[in-house]
Design a protein around this nucleic acid. Structure first.
Lengths: 243, 243
DNA sequence: AAGTGGTCTAGACCACGAC
DNA sequence: TCGTGGTCTAGACCACTTA
């Protein structure tokens, strides 16, 4: 591997190891080289190797056993996601084996609802940019997402808005903002009327509803939104690990 | 603080800091002492302090800002859970402000269904211990959980079985097994008949369904199960963070 | 006994934010 | 400029598994 300064060494090692796992250099269920072996191989300290392995362990990709070794978790290989899957819809659709695409239904500026104002720390009636988007798995609509962003965040010089872009990228490109964390509420819900029609489901169909608010490092709310998620097509599969 | 060997220093520091947050020594939104300050204060290396803070950051409890400082995230204080909330039902109910209790509906040995056999790496018909439990928030039933454990895991000398115990503790006490990770599928579902009656909901009520399989470090499946979760009473609120 | 991951230290340098 | 968190190193010792 070529070590380049400027991007953290740990990230580079991370990429190389994930690449080797993808390419089958290390096979599912197999035992990996030891930490000191990696340390020699990459010319980095064992501590650095360990931060990389800790990250992979937290995602369930590997299993480490004291006194024994580190093994690739063959059950996580294909599909499964981290919590991120709950909202990184494109990646989720992709990992379920479909071709993801986004259709922008509407991009408009309007006054914030009371709930939006409350969640985004605005006054009711302050302008927000409202995005309404439909996510497709291959040709089938599977997720209907509605988001609101305080209009004052938006640098209009960057326009026109591309409604097909992911929220995270949207915030970077048009607002120069970075998400630090999100709070999600998961519930079940019925879809009706226009929503059902867009999702090509019968009125009264059961779906998962995900309400989400994104915040930045300064604890400023950036975006809020509701998504309806067709769990008859997409599986919502999560991994939970412990120390 | 009294430093005791035998439990890791990082865990002890962790406990002390969480205690101070609970007790209001550090208040929501407030800036914490610097890493080197903690390092001096506890007489441990900065690296140790950092592993503790990293853990808290991953749970969304604190926000760290380079060049500035570390702040307590006031939005996470009260209720919110980590992914663990999806299945550590007692803790979830508690954090929603209710008194949790568990009623054991049935504890029986029976042959594994085809699906169970598949998920637990058994032959169909191999015996499993089937637990059926109802979780209450105060006096209201909110979660109906059905789990199956391969019977060969169970050390009968430890019996009789206590159906009111949590799965994690059950595995430790009766099977000497430790959970390493779990894979969950979240979907929406209707409850009917007996299930609806137990949950005191009308037949055809909408609920969240959580299917889960637990594994140990050797990637051996330990338990599988289905849970119905009344999201009209309990909120399922998750936190997602990024590096 | 040898090798593995788990914990911890002391110290270095860097990037960034506030003053 | 100074203090903060972010990254990395080299080395030590321990606990555990396997042979």
């Amino acid at each position: 591997m070529d070590i380049i300064r400027s991007t953290p060494i740990a990230d580079q090692v991370n990429e190389v190891l994930r690449g080797r796992m993808r390419d089958g250099v290390y096979k599912p269920g197999e035992r990996l080289p030891s930490e000191s072996e990696f340390s020699k191989q990459f010319g980095v300290s064992r501590a650095t190797v360990r931060t990389v392995l800790a990250r992979m362990e937290a995602e369930g990709l590997i299993l480490r056993k004291q006194g024994d070794g580190t093994y690739i978790n063959e059950r996580i290989q294909d599909v499964n996601t981290h919590l991120g899957g709950l909202w990184e819809f494109s990646r989720l659709i992709e990992s379920s084996g479909y071709q993801p695409s986004i259709k922008s239904l509407s991009v408009e500026s309007r006054p914030a609802s009371e709930r939006e104002a409350n969640e985004l720390a605005l006054q009711p009636g302050d302008p927000v940019l409202a995005l309404r988007r439909l996510f497709y798995a291959d040709r089938q609509p599977v997720i209907l997402a509605s988001n609101a962003i305080p209009y004052r965040f938006i640098d209009e010089a960057q326009g026109p808005f591309d409604g097909q872009v992911r929220i995270r990228e949207f915030l970077v490109r048009y607002c120069d903002l970075k998400i630090a964390y999100a709070i999600l509420d998961v519930s079940s819900a019925l879809v009706d009327g226009e929503d059902a029609r867009l999702l090509e489901r019968a009125p009264g169909a059961m779906m998962l509803k995900i309400h989400i608010i994104f915040y930045d490092r300064d604890n400023q709310p950036l975006v809020c939104g509701d998504s309806y998620y067709d769990d008859s097509v997409l599986r919502l599969r999560l991994v939970q690990t412990w120390g």
